[in-house]
């Protein structure tokens, strides 16, 4: 197990591993997405409260879950990069940031499109929404800092600090906004009536969740590969790979 882990952590074997894995992960992701969306849009019954608007759940919830998951993953990779100075952890952390930012933006926008017909407002300053917005800025901060410094290792470790400090703050933001909302009582409190989800609504949701996770994994693997190539541009294995790759190109 550990030898396998160590071998994977070396850049050339991670690169080959990602090359073998990524096409399958991405392909399966798109196939499952097509199945999940068709199921969700055509065959799942409409919600008795929300009607057909509830179908936005099939894009909103997977994006939200993955944006949080990617931030957690990024912070863990960042902590590994800071504590053990693992090169691969730095690369994976930086690869997760743009993917997470896209999913966070999708979450916010689809959430607004869901909120308008359901609550009558595009946006409310609720804890979950605000935390997601803060997440967007944290991802942006990691992306900007990850490329701000010329020395890539210093840049990556600086970004790792922001990822780690940020994850401590997300629950604090949630708590503070909840407190803030409770301060002025009498203001209209929006009820987030959860749609009572039945099995034939839930199965496509799980399929969409898995599909989004696979697509995110695919994008992270590919971006990590590019980061590795940039870092290791002068090493033998990249030079050998380049010769092979350019020979194979038409």
């Amino acid at each position: 197990m550990w030898t396998w882990f160590h071998r994977l952590a070396s850049p050339p074997s991670f690169f080959r591993f990602a090359d073998r894995l990524a096409p399958w992960v991405g392909g399966l992701g798109f196939v499952l997405l097509a199945i999940g969306w068709t199921w969700g849009l055509v065959y799942a019954p409409p919600d008795y409260q929300q009607g057909d608007a509830f179908r936005i759940i099939y894009v909103h919830v997977p994006a939200a879950a993955l944006s949080l998951g990617l931030y957690t993953g990024m912070a863990i990779a960042g902590a590994c990069a800071l504590i053990w100075r693992m090169k691969l952890a730095e690369v994976v952390m930086l690869a997760m940031a743009p993917v997470g930012m896209v999913l966070t933006a999708v979450t916010l926008l689809t959430g607004m499109l869901w909120g308008k017909p359901m609550w009558g407002a595009w946006w409310v300053w609720d804890a979950r929404l605000t935390a997601e917005l803060v997440l967007l800025f944290l991802f942006l901060g990691v992306i900007v800092l990850g490329d701000a410094i010329e020395d890539p290792r210093r840049s990556a470790r600086a970004a790792a600090w922001i990822a780690v400090v940020g994850i401590v703050n997300v629950p604090i933001v949630k708590f503070s906004v909840n407190w803030w909302n409770s301060l002025h009582q009498g203001a209209t409190v929006l009820s987030f009536g959860k749609p009572a989800i039945t099995v034939d609504m839930a199965i496509p949701l799980y399929i969409c969740l898995l599909a989004t996770a696979l697509l995110a994994a695919h994008a992270v693997l590919r971006r990590a590969q590019v980061r590795l190539l940039q870092r290791e541009a002068r090493t033998q294995w990249v030079k050998a790979l380049r010769a092979q790759e350019l020979g194979a190109l038409p």
Binding site: V134, F137, G141, G166, N169
Partner: peptide
């Protein structure tokens, strides 16, 4: 400011 301001919300 991009790094600091989001964390100032609480």
């Amino acid at each position: 400011p991009l790094l600091v301001l989001p964390l100032m919300a609480p």
